[in-house]
Design a protein around this nucleic acid. Structure first.
Length: 519
DNA sequence: GGGCCTTTGAAGTGG
DNA sequence: CCACTTCAAAGGCCC
């Protein structure tokens, strides 16, 4: 519990706390305890909500996860805890639901008149700000509506100034964009539809309907009147990136309200806010002649659209301010230099870390292996995943090998979110069965195979060549064809979907790179 | 120093 | 009634 101010005393009754839970034996600091509503004579007491089952679970498990995962950030810990909560059996969860029920009952006995409503900060700064924004938005729409229905001439209105063209707003609308050069238009959909007898649509972005540049991409939108520059453009919607948004695109982040453009466009079935990665239909061809889509940073120059790209994103930055994606170092790091792609697919600021290139591409040697490994991986946003069953049990998959087994885990990701392209990391003192001295040797071979495939694919001018390159890669044992999965069916186009992963490793855990060979 | 991030569940709010 | 929002915990991070 933290006291934010002197006159606010957060109190959280807990089953394991020292706060008495029985009526009549309330905490001495609560002179009015039981009177509820958070009111104590002369003092405002903030009575916190009772913890729910998951919160109790978090409270109990947090320390353990922190110790196991060497993580401190609660956001990351909570992701892990969320997964563990779902992994619990119904019986195990029931224990926490029961605790939560008892907690709630105790809370109710202590504060019979308390309501969660009391804690709703309807007067908080945040709420005030939101209410103010909503008010401004309502006012803005009313203003636009008023202008639209005003008999005033365009030249005299705030929204439309047509220079020497003295027309009504409605006439202006009916005449089309060419009649209103250099002017800003934000108008009600229903009105323009009524005026033109056609169906129009706005581009929805950032929680409001915004003007869109004619012929522009879906994420290219402008500012609303009165908004400061910087509110246009980008592909942000809500807190997180949206799946399926087009990549980067033109930077309109400094754009002005769109002037000189048509702000509404005819509804068009070819228009989609989420353009498909592939055209549909059995004979459809992707516009890119190479017809190879590679996910991730494997070959950033080849892909025209990424299936599941998740670029690193600088923490706290705007969502459009994502990191670089470059070719991987042999150990899976990414080198800067290539402009980042979209960071959709649930990629959020916290989950994405920065991926500086790893420190070394040299296979680890005996003796120095451990320190080198830590040095290498501590330089990136990865942390080590401890072997599940203790340090000596990390070698079971490698049988008689002696050494230390690690996994590189995305910092901020959940415990199973291994770093891209990374599998278990084994520092061995003996040669492995396949002749690799260490598992970093394996990784080098793995990434080498990927690079060869990428280079071959980039050079391929035909599907046949591409298939041959892919087949060769598959034959290498480091790339394998993926079963027809959801992606394949989604795109509904003929081709082969490959999944790149390390040999002998569970693809669902480790494989992050996918590519699609399109006929 | 305030607010965000991140999780689930309970409860409040608003249309 | 349903969808959406807020708040419980935690601590690092960002402005």
């Amino acid at each position: 519990c933290q006291s934010s101010t002197q006159d606010r005393q957060p109190i959280t009754p807990s089953l394991d706390s020292s706060i008495p839970l029985e009526p009549g034996s309330s905490d001495s600091s609560l002179s009015g305890s039981g009177s509820g509503a958070g009111l104590v004579p002369g003092k405002w007491v903030h009575i916190k909500k009772p913890l729910n089952a998951f919160m109790l679970f978090m409270k109990e498990m947090r320390a353990r996860v922190v110790a196991e995962c060497t993580l401190k950030e609660s956001a990351a810990i909570n992701q892990i805890l969320g997964r563990r909560w779902h992994a619990l059996s119904r019986d195990e969860q029931t224990r926490f639901y029961d605790m939560a029920r008892l907690e709630k009952e105790a809370h109710q006995r202590l504060y019979p008149n308390w309501s969660a409503r009391d804690n709703y900060a309807s007067h908080s700064k945040k709420k005030k700000r939101q209410q103010q924004q909503q008010h401004q938005q309502r006012h803005h729409h009313q203003h636009i509506s008023m202008l639209l229905h005003s008999p005033a001439e365009c030249s005299s209105s705030e929204a439309y100034r047509l220079g020497s063209n003295k027309q009504s707003i409605r006439e202006c609308l009916e005449a089309g964009d060419s009649m209103c050069p250099g002017e800003e238009k934000v108008i009600a959909k229903a009105d323009i539809e009524k005026a033109t007898g056609s169906t129009w649509e706005y581009v929805e972005a950032r929680g409001s309907l915004r003007p869109a540049k004619i012929g522009g991409k879906d994420h290219e939108f402008g500012c609303l009147p009165g908004e400061p520059p910087g509110n246009g453009g980008g592909n942000r919607e809500g807190r997180n990136c949206r799946a399926g948004q087009p990549t980067g695109g033109s930077d309109l982040s400094t754009s002005r309200p769109f002037r000189g453009h048509k702000t509404l466009r005819m509804a068009d079935t070819s228009f989609s806010r989420r353009p498909q990665a592939f055209p549909s239909g059995p004979t459809a061809r992707h516009p890119d002649s190479l017809a190879l889509l590679v996910n991730s940073a494997l070959s950033p120059t080849m892909n025209t659209e990424r299936l599941a790209c998740s670029s690193p994103s600088r923490r706290g930055a705007d969502v459009s301010d994502y990191g670089f994606v470059g070719r991987r170092s042999p150990l899976g790091g990414e080198t800067a230099g290539q402009q980042g792609c979209c960071n959709h697919v649930g990629c959020s600021r916290n989950v994405c870390g920065e991926y500086p290139p790893l420190a070394t591409s040299t296979p680890f040697l005996e003796g120095s292996a451990t320190s080198s490994a830590f040095s290498a991986f501590s330089s990136c946003s990865c942390s080590f995943k401890a072997p599940d069953a203790g340090p000596t049990n990390g070698f079971t998959s490698l049988d008689s090998e002696a050494g230390v087994d690690f996994a590189c885990v995305k910092r901020g990701g959940d415990e199973d979110a291994l770093c891209d392209g990374e599998g278990d990391f084994h520092i061995s003192t003996d040669q492995t069965a396949d002749g690799c001295r260490t598992s970093s040797d394996k990784k080098m071979r793995f990434h080498s195979a990927l690079n060869e495939l990428a280079a071959a694919a980039a050079a391929a001018s035909s599907h046949a060549m591409l298939s041959a390159a892919a087949a060769a890669a598959v034959g290498s044992g480091y790339v394998r064809e993926r079963e027809r999965g959801t992606n394949y069916q989604e795109h509904n186009c003929p081709g082969r979907h490959f999944h790149v992963c390390m040999k002998g490793v569970d693809s669902s855990e480790v494989c992050s790179s996918e590519f699609f060979v399109y006929k």
